[in-house]
Design a protein around this nucleic acid. Structure first.
Lengths: 189, 189
DNA sequence: GCATTTCCGTACGGTACTGTATGGGCTATC
DNA sequence: GATAGCCCATACAGTACCGTACGGAAATGC
């Protein structure tokens, strides 16, 4: 029996799962330990306390989110194509189904707030810049970015909260393509 | 000292506040009792257990949401005007700042799910009907409704999660009017 | 003005989680 | 094959919440 070791990353992934399913207060050590098949002795070896786990999980999400978000699009030259693939990737990806809605919902938590504001700022700036490259003046580009980002947020919320009610948002269903086309036509100037 | 009594409705409002701030697991009896200035003895007079409080708070939200949502718009004859005032009301209203995002975020909770699916179904149906009245064929109306509702959801999420990052979503700020106009132009066919 | 209903305080046992202290098994290394 | 460092189990307070049982004050009906 190899008795595979539990790593620090395992704890962070477990915390993200718990965060996606049960929110901030669901990130508790004992249940995650049980799910990982160890006791809390392992946890307190890697982390100082429960808050350190939450911060680690959020910052892991932040880094992966921004790295996979922006750097993957760099090779695409055309701004319009960049916007379209950006949206397709963002709206059909897996994103640990529900992590982001859970984070947004707990914006009142001081730990969550600081990470979420960094991510939101970065994304809105990126979108604003993109729409400016498409010819919109700065104010219009900014408003377009806000509207577009709102549509993105709501889309993944809808997909998580009621996939059966709005099957158009399901990542793999047959309805998703025309619905995505429709949304993209609304959002591209 | 009149020592005002605590009503069942007070408990439901307190539960909604707690739900908006801390999610489902934040709806706990003892803290709400402290905030109301009574002990848990009052609670167990009105409610069977904690879950009954959660269900009551959700159903109160559902009824107020649908009543104030649809019936207020009935007197407006023009579909386009109905859509526009609907959106302005929904996006600038107070909505117990954050109740809805919190509910959406906890869609995995079985108690939340049933209420949320009812509300989502009703709203999407209403929007689909509205766009059909504006001349769109059934499939296009449905897609337009999904896109529009996603924009609504994301807008209020954004407004709650990062009002300082996206001041365009603040209900009273000077930036909200042009941003809303922009969004409405994108979403009206 | 008495009895009844309404509403709330108090006290109890139980559960689930937190953080700490401590010790011991495993693995690598030489 | 002894040693050092890594990883985890166990045991022990301490906290916060739940649900129940019971009792009493305060309003209300007649």
């Amino acid at each position: 029996m190899p008795t595979v070791k539990v790593t620090r990353d395992d704890w962070l992934r477990g915390a993200q799962r718990a965060l996606a399913e049960s929110g901030v207060s669901g990130v508790s050590v004992e249940p995650i330990a049980k799910q990982l098949g160890v006791t809390r002795g392992s946890f307190y070896w890697y982390f100082k306390d429960r808050e350190a786990l939450l911060v680690g999980a959020l910052e892991l999400w932040e880094s992966e989110e921004t790295i996979g978000f922006i750097e993957e699009l760099a090779p695409i030259a055309e701004p319009l194509a960049r916007l379209q693939t950006l949206f397709r990737e963002a709206l059909t990806g897996d994103l640990i189904a529900g992590l982001e809605p859970a984070i947004v919902a707990h914006a009142s938590d001081p730990v969550v707030r600081v990470v979420l504001e960094r991510v939101t700022t970065r994304r809105l700036d990126y979108l604003t810049d993109l729409f400016a490259q498409l010819g919109l003046d700065p104010a219009a580009a900014r408003r377009q970015a806000v509207a577009t980002y709102a549509a993105y947020l709501g889309w993944i919320e809808l997909r998580r909260a009621a996939p059966d009610i709005a099957p158009e948002t399901k990542g793999s269903g047959p309805l998703v393509e025309p619905a995505l086309d429709h949304l993209l036509r609304l959002l591209t100037p």
